Measured scan of single mutants.
Amino acid sequence: GMDVRRLKVNELREELQRRGLDTRGLKAELAERLQAALSGPSSG
């Protein structure tokens, strides 16, 4: 899988935006949010 901790802030935001998620917050928050999205149930 993707290691969200290795991504830069702008990369985290890009991935979040692609999934329609909130791109605001600290890098740690963005990484946590993206990780949750990646490990969560895949819809679609």
Rank of each mutant, 00 (worst) to 15 (best):
A36P: 00
L38V: 07
R6I: 09
E15I: 07
T23W: 09
N10A: 14
E14H: 12
R24I: 07
A37I: 06
R24Y: 06
D3L: 09
R6V: 09
D22V: 04
R18A: 07
V4F: 07
G25S: 01
T23S: 08
A37D: 04
L16R: 00
R18S: 05
K27W: 15
N10I: 09
K8V: 04
R13G: 00
L21N: 02
E14W: 15
Q35W: 14
S39E: 10
M2Q: 08
G20C: 07
K8H: 10
L16N: 01
R19P: 02
Q35D: 05
G40W: 11
A37P: 01
L12A: 00
G44S: 11
V9F: 10
G25D: 01
D3S: 08
G20N: 06
G44Y: 11
T23H: 08
R33D: 01
L34K: 00
L16Q: 00
L12Q: 00
L30W: 02
Q17W: 11
S39N: 14
A36F: 07
A31D: 03
G1D: 11
G25A: 01
V9E: 09
P41S: 13
V4I: 12
V4L: 08
R5Y: 14
L30T: 01
E11I: 06
D22G: 05
M2K: 09
K27V: 07
R6Q: 11
R5A: 14
R18F: 04
G40K: 12
E32S: 10
A31G: 04
R24Q: 09
E32T: 10
A28W: 15
A36K: 12
L34Q: 01
E32Y: 08
L16I: 01
L30F: 01
E29M: 07
L12N: 00
R6E: 10
S43A: 13
M2F: 14
L21R: 02
R5G: 12
L38I: 11
Q17G: 10
R18D: 03
L16Y: 01
L21V: 03
S42T: 13
R6S: 12
N10C: 09
R33A: 02
E14Y: 14
A31C: 14
D3P: 06
N10W: 15
S43T: 12
K27G: 05
E14G: 07
D3N: 10
D22K: 06
L12M: 05
L34I: 02
Q35P: 00
G25L: 01
R6Y: 11
G20P: 01
R24V: 07
R33M: 02
A28H: 14
M2I: 15
L34N: 00
M2D: 07
V9P: 05
E11T: 05
G20Q: 04
Q17E: 11
G40H: 13
R18K: 14
G20K: 05
V9G: 03
R5D: 09
R13K: 09
R24N: 11
V4M: 05
S42Q: 14
L26W: 06
R33V: 02
A36W: 08
E29L: 06
T23L: 04
S42V: 12
E14N: 10
Q17D: 07
A37T: 05
E11H: 05
L16S: 01
L30M: 06
G40Y: 11
R19F: 05
K8Q: 09
R24D: 07
E32G: 08
E11P: 01
S39Y: 14
E29K: 06
V9T: 08
E29T: 08
G1V: 14
Q35R: 13
Q35I: 15
R5L: 11
S39G: 12
S39K: 12
L26S: 15
L7T: 02
R19E: 02
K8F: 05
